[in-house]
Design a binder for these strands. Structure first.
Length: 447
RNA sequence: GCCCCGUUCGUCUAGAGGCCUAGGACGCCAGAUUCUCAAUCUGGUAACACGGGUUCAAAUCCCGUACGGGGUGCCA
């Protein structure tokens, strides 16, 4: 049997990291079983702009490397089919008309202004058993279920109806979704059974939770995938991290290419308990993925970031990144951090980090002497990294300081920060005149 | 309330009765190293929720308790 799964986002306007994880697991399952991965936009709420919504979702899924098979299906396009199923259920007595107070209204045809509820009593078995790949067999007693609305009085299908009908019509073999949908699964199965259809196999994924162990909330948590992309996270790092939430590779190697995860992933290995979305660990994954990029690829990924950087576009100096790229690559954790490693080479007056200034210069008794002497020494040191290194080292030794200490005030005076790329290589790129101008400015500021 | 699900280091996980005095990763702590460190390396810290069974043997199987979560809409 060829497997067929779907990711069915609801129209909230953006992609949630939990939704992205669900999409990823569906995609992994489809690709690893040679099946199909479809996209269905559950836009039964017709007020949204669906083109725009779909663009956001497709864009983000594409960013993550999750490609759907075929064009996305809009649930709202299946309205007539949904209506047809409701009408049939009504005729079969498996559903009934009801008014706003949920009182049954006699009739076997749809009536404008009246809703339709499913009649659970029409189901003849005592229990509904869900065959769940993750949770095993889960059963619900039919006697404890209440009738539920299939068709609203405003003539639109509810999630329960549309979701069930579309899964059947699309030939979905495995419904892989969040655990929050587990309690509604027996209702979907009731509808499918009444349609004379066979329900798909289910797999309810453990929820992603926040530090309070609650389902990720749009209000309190950073759940939008766009936010993470905007913070400089690599799609491969995000997808890789998401794959380790609720699932773990058997060989304990967590950070790896998606192609390898595809080979190792098995739906039945997915865990049952909720997982905390840990930004710190995500950051570590990201830093590692950044370092694994080739130098060329790293620079290419940085391009969109530098286009929005604080320096004027015409001030960008290609030679700076050609020389410092690899050194920046091994230090940053997110792409967003790259800018402050090199901005002082593109700006006339780079910002000065207050804490760095206090520690290395204002609060450092020898800082003034070091800066003044550096001004003198740099005036006639050959402007090359090796020579600057030696000159600065000697300067420090005259104060009984190791190079590490001696370079601190110089670094802050010139770059504005205590952290950055290797100083002497960078000074060469800055030019002697500019370096000396900044040293003088720092001394003036101190006076 | 009722229904359903879950419970291994702070966190993500490995573990399918003996390989477990429980492994890896993040974090944290310490040390090393580099011209800076937010990089790198090394080491350390820390868990089978509890109580009963079953068994020669249980983190692994069964039952119960506790705790946590999800659901209980003419939301999805």
């Amino acid at each position: 049997m060829t497997t067929c799964v779907r990711f069915a986002p609801s129209p909230t306007g953006y992609l949630h990291v939990g939704g992205a994880r669900t999409a990823l697991f569906n995609w992994l399952f489809a690709r690893s079983t040679g099946g199909r991965f479809l996209l269905r936009v559950e836009d039964t709420d017709t007020e949204r702009n669906r083109d725009e919504l779909t663009d956001v979702i497709l864009d983000l899924l594409g960013w993550l490397g999750i490609e759907a098979d075929g064009e996305p299906v809009f649930q709202s396009d299946n309205r007539s089919r949904h209506r047809e199923v409701v009408e049939q259920l009504l005729r079969d007595g498996k559903a009934y008309l009801c008014d706003n107070e949920n009182n049954e209204v006699v009739g076997a045809e749809l009536v404008e202004g009246l809703a339709v509820r499913f009649r659970v009593a029409s189901y003849e078995q005592e229990t509904l058993n869900i065959c769940d790949v993750v949770r095993g067999e889960v059963s619900f007693a039919a006697a404890e279920m209440e009738d539920f609305v299939l068709w609203r009085s405003n003539a639109t299908p509810t999630f329960l109806l549309a979701n069930a009908v579309d899964d059947i019509d699309m030939g979905i073999t495995h419904a892989i979704r969040g655990e929050d949908l587990l309690p509604s699964t027996p209702k979907a199965m009731l509808v499918m059974d009444a349609m004379g259809a066979v329900a798909p196999t289910y797999a309810h994924l453990p929820l992603l939770v926040n530090e309070q162990r609650k389902k990720l909330s749009k209000r309190k948590d950073d759940v939008s995938l766009e936010i993470w992309r905007g913070r400089g996270y690599l799609p491969e790092a995000m997808a890789n991290y998401l794959a380790t939430l609720g699932w773990g590779p058997p060989d304990d190697i967590e950070i790896r290419p998606m192609a390898e995860i595809l080979e190792l992933f098995r739906l039945e290995d997915v865990l049952k308990s909720p997982a905390f979305f840990d930004p710190k660990k995500l950051e570590h994954f990201n830093a590692t993925h950044i370092r694994r990029l080739s130098s060329e690829e790293f620079l290419a990924r940085l391009e969109p970031w530098f286009e929005e950087a604080a320096w004027p576009a015409q001030r960008y100096r290609t030679e700076v990144m050609d020389a410092l790229g690899p050194m920046v690559q091994e230090k940053i954790r997110t792409l967003a951090e790259a800018e402050r490693f090199v901005d002082w080479l593109m700006l006339d007056d780079p910002p000065v980090d207050v804490a760095s200034w206090e520690k290395a210069i204002a609060g450092n008794a020898v800082a003034r002497d070091i800066l003044s002497e550096a001004l003198v020494v740099y005036a006639d040191t050959p402007w090359q990294a090796d020579n600057l290194y030696e000159a600065t080292k000697t300067l420090g030794e005259q104060h009984g300081l190791k190079l590490g200490k001696a370079q601190a005030p110089i670094r802050v005076a010139i770059t504005g920060r205590s952290v950055g790329p290797p100083l002497f290589e960078s000074l060469v790129l800055l030019s002697r005149e500019e370096a000396m101008r900044r040293l003088q400015m720092a001394i003036n500021k101190l006076d």
